[in-house]
Structures are given as C-alpha cells and as structure tokens.
C-alpha cells in the first residue's frame, strides 16, 4: 500500500514536470498574441458550455418538479 502511494506520487510529479518540458500544447508556446488569446477564449468557452447546459437542465428540472400538477 505504501509502495503504491509512493508510486502514484512519483507518477503525478513526473507528469507535472514532464508537461512543462514537453510544451505539449502548441498554443501555449506560440509567439502570436492573437493565438494565445484564441486559446484562452476557447478554453473559457469549452469550460462554460457544459456547465451552462447542465446548470440550465438542473434549474429547469427543479422548476418543473416544484410546479403543482
């Protein structure tokens, strides 16, 4: 169990350090300001869309269940 915990910690740290070295995302290393901005905008967009859909559905469901028949 202890070995497993140490292994997971080492793997996580390796991912964190490795990602910095790899520059896996081409937008992160782009010198173009417009490209960096587009990357930020689309990240925000892709984060908010599922939250808005799920939030909207839960809100609608709550409203429906609270309405008297």
């Amino acid at each position: 169990m202890r070995l497993l915990r140490v292994g997971v910690t080492v793997a996580m740290l390796a991912v964190v350090w490795g990602a910095e070295l790899a520059y896996a995302c081409p937008a992160c290393a782009s010198p173009l300001e417009e490209n960096r901005q587009a990357f930020v905008d689309t990240t925000v967009f892709l984060t908010l869309v599922p939250l808005a859909m799920m939030g909207g559905f839960v809100w609608w469901l709550r409203r429906q269940t609270r309405q008297p028949h």
């Binding site: 937008a27 417009e34 901005q37 587009a38 869309v49 599922p50 859909m53």
Partner: peptide, 25 residues
Amino acid sequence: MLIFVATEVMFFSGLISAFVIGKSN
C-alpha cells in the same frame, strides 16, 4: 434526444474551437 444533443453541442464546440485557434495561428 436532449442528452444526445448535449454531446453534439460539445462536439461542435470542439470543432469550432479548433478552427478559431487554427485561424488565429
């Protein structure tokens, strides 16, 4: 259908995002 359309929204969002980044690059 709502669940299916929600996945489609994410699919098209991904395509549009890729296009926006490609265009800016």
